[in-house]
Design a protein around this nucleic acid. Structure first.
Lengths: 208, 208
DNA sequence: AAGAATATAGACAACATACTCACATTTTTC
DNA sequence: GAAAAATGTGAGTATGTTGTCTATATTCTT
């Protein structure tokens, strides 16, 4: 006869009240991100996370009802970090080249936090519960930066939607590949990526 | 005192002799690729594969000593398929645009077989045993196509290595992203990807 | 300082997965 | 056509993972 909430275990089982427990939760999320980034979804076990965080498995389940909700928390935190980094790197009115440079710089910084976490969160980690919404929202806000750039710098107006998608996934691909081989900081790579963006947006292909 | 071979369980436990068993092995590999592509590395269990192949779990272990050797077989087969498709799509002397078109067409075909298998094999599936070598060999043969194109179509000679890597990972990124949202066959996407390649290789960025 | 609220620990139950083994069935060989 | 070789089977074992429960330790309130 209790007032059962629709999704009893959607977010957090118990709100941390004391400073001590807030630190515990923070440690768990941070350790979780680390394990997920280093070992991938398959190696992501709650016991390993608790171990890496220096807490017991019991403490973990005190705040996260299940594995998915923990991933959810990691996802939320990481996406927020990425978006804030990118957002501040690309705003205002700048020439194309400068925009590209700052975008690339922002992307690299965002991925330097946890080199492979981003890709793992996007591809491996399941997103069944309420994450579809968060995921989509992130993707759309993420695309906005590219869409704005495309609208601002491209001469042609057709297919702007597709162009933004192509550009963003191309940039992601390069960053991801570089992260995998630990070459995110290589300056030639940054330069070439900037050139790729500029070349595509200034539309040199149609003349040939 | 026996003559122990260095890697007793590296490849196959038993060679299939009759046609029946060859079909079994084939069915297992095919089913394995399917499961891996659909469910990812985390959902890739030997029981599911045996089930999907319509054989018993015992039969699977008759030919594959462990899970890794099965992944190895899947990897080998898929990479061979991809390379052969790409190889025949990009050879001879063609204008840049035509090369780009055929490359894109080839990549899309290669990934249409099992949309996400490629990425799963590259990122998720572990490659501990002898796979590092096969993996590196594939990557290098894979890059060769891009390097050849870069050398042939670019005016500048500097940083050709980096340019090839940037180009290949950009193309991979776009293809991968399209595969994830089931848009591999969208014609605007193909067109835009071709334009991206042409724009970058014909080097329009430096003039701005 | 004592009792209530909060936090942590780790043994344990329930379940999933990789892989084995003793035996059944089919094909080949003579 | 019978013995031998090859192939196929699936319950069973060992191991690891998720998530629970209860006992204990720490912090807050008054």
């Amino acid at each position: 006869m209790s007032t059962r909430i629709a999704k009893p275990r959607s977010r957090m089982r118990k709100q941390p009240r004391q400073a001590r427990s807030r630190a515990t939760v923070e440690a768990i999320i941070e350790a979780g991100a680390h394990v997920l980034s280093a070992l991938g979804w398959a190696g992501f076990t709650t016991n390993k996370v608790a171990d890496a965080a220096g807490v017991s498995i019991g403490s973990l389940y005190q705040y996260f009802p299940d594995k998915l909700s923990l991933v959810e928390a990691i996802r939320r935190r990481h996406f927020d970090q990425v978006l804030s980094v990118i957002a501040e790197s690309a705003e205002g009115d700048k020439p194309l080249k400068r925009f590209a440079q700052e975008l690339v710089r922002g992307m690299i910084e965002a991925h330097s936090i946890h080199p492979t976490l981003h890709q793992v969160l996007l591809d491996e980690a399941p997103g069944d519960r309420g994450s579809r919404a968060a995921h989509a929202s992130f993707q759309s806000r993420y695309l906005d930066h590219y869409t704005a750039a495309v609208a601002q710098y491209r001469r042609r107006r057709k297919d702007n939607e597709t162009v933004a998608r192509v550009l963003s996934s191309a940039v992601e691909g390069v960053i991801h590949n570089a992260a995998r081989r630990d070459m995110l900081e290589a300056p030639e790579l940054q330069k070439q990526l900037v050139e790729l963006i500029c070349a595509y947006l200034s539309g040199a292909g149609r003349s040939v």
